[in-house]
Design a protein around this nucleic acid. Structure first.
Lengths: 243, 243
DNA sequence: CGTACCATTGACAGCCCTCAAAGCAGGTGG
DNA sequence: CCACCTGCTTTGAGGGCTGTCAATGGTACG
């Protein structure tokens, strides 16, 4: 279920991600490429941070998708954020009980242990200054995406929310080299879209149909194509994450 | 418009806040108490981070309320988070253009310049280890509150959202010694409640009336009383921020 | 061929929004 | 002292966006 990523180097997305933030020295590129292979594998549906000493391990997503999830006692579920290939888990953002959320693998997942990276950051290792700078920027990006999510849920209509989320995912996949020509793998069910966007499954379905009717996207299970990015951005006031 | 806080030491709330997180040494208490007085004053409605060199100054809120706000081109506004006395601005969380938001004073505001504190954190100053630890924890709390906001907007009904936010604000005011017996100053208009909770002004009004009818809160302009915290928490699955 | 999961469609209800107007309190100036 | 203004709160009516319930279809897999 890892799709096209299966045979790529698992460090490639993270390298892409860092290079969108800062230029790296050859030494730094090697530092990343040697980060703890082989990967730790979680199956779709597994909890990445539920019990065990792995709870506080910092990871880099090599392949597959995960999400941060909050569940209410009555069963309502809210997806807070997504982790895509090249994202860090528990490094730029935080593992802590106070966060009261679970990290769930949405597909089969290959994670790289980034403890060495975390240590380098902690002691401000002078041999990898750009990496440290990039990770600092990455904290900011992650925060900005949380604010995006708040804006979507608080102020956008269903149609706008869906468009806005698709654009965010597109940009993120493009950044790590996993989107070509507006097309990228999208392993979300409509129910999961609903959990992320605060909508019911049924309404997600109707919203997606509307986007298709207007020739803004193409969607088949597991894959999406952004047909008219500009019009889609206009529709939902999406602001390209500049700088 | 600063209410009861007017004559308190402006560093008091921040000291309270830190002490809820870690114990401080006498040296550390003095370090806080000498943080750059007199305060920088913003009038209600002013933008704290809009243009000028003050943009990247890290602050501590001494008195008054502020919020982080996102505005859409068509005028829709979403309050992302609140800054209460004792909170930091641009220290635990981030000033950066990518965040695409404005920090607005909701009341007259007295801010302490915390550049000295920021520098102490940056160079890991060994004379104030507990303060640094507390600021690290504070980042986590701030993130947790963003997730709370996402949960409210994505999964709670209007009544639940309102209850949940009131409880959060109550706990935060209580932590910094500004709530007694469930009562605390609440300088929000119903319109601002709406901007924070993703509701219309009219619906905020009706929701507040419902909470009053059920004897859960008392509310008069500028001030609120939580009458039955336990029932209110039950109503919205509020989880006390433990640990 | 049955099972399970996901996508799709229809009918209907309800939560919440918009529009509109009236009440209320504080501040200002005549 | 009162008229007036301004900003906030309150109330009513009606509509629309979105949720819930229920059933059907499609596809992968055993």
């Amino acid at each position: 279920m890892l799709g096209d990523d299966q045979f790529r180097k698992l460090t490639a997305p993270f390298l892409c991600r860092l290079r969108t933030l800062v230029p790296l020295t050859p030494h730094e590129e090697r530092f990343i490429e040697t980060l703890d292979l082989p990967p730790h594998v979680f199956q779709a549906g597994a909890h990445v941070n539920k019990g065990g000493s792995l709870d506080f391990t910092p990871w880099i997503v090599g392949a597959g998708w995960a999400c941060r999830l909050r569940v209410l006692p009555d069963g309502r579920r809210q997806i807070v954020s997504f982790f895509l290939p090249g994202d860090t888990i528990g490094l730029s953002e935080v593992h802590h009980p106070a966060i009261q959320s679970t990290i769930v693998a949405m597909t089969d997942l290959r994670l790289l242990n980034s403890t060495r990276l975390a240590e380098a950051i902690d002691r401000a290792d002078q041999s990898v200054p750009n990496i440290i700078q990039a990770c600092r920027m990455s904290v900011i990006w992650m925060q900005a995406r949380l604010l995006d999510q708040i804006l979507r849920l608080g102020r956008l209509t269903a149609l706008e929310r869906m468009a806005h989320l698709l654009l965010e995912l597109h940009y993120r996949m493009e950044d790590v080299g996993l989107a070509q020509d507006g097309r990228f793998p999208l392993p979300l069910t409509q129910s999961q879209f609903g959990e992320a966007l605060g909508l019911s499954l049924v309404h997600v379905n109707r919203t997606l149909q509307q986007l298709r009717r207007e020739n803004l996207i193409e969607l088949r299970p597991g894959r999406v194509a952004i047909l008219d990015r500009e019009r889609l951005e206009l529709l939902c006031d999406f602001r390209k994450p500049a700088i």
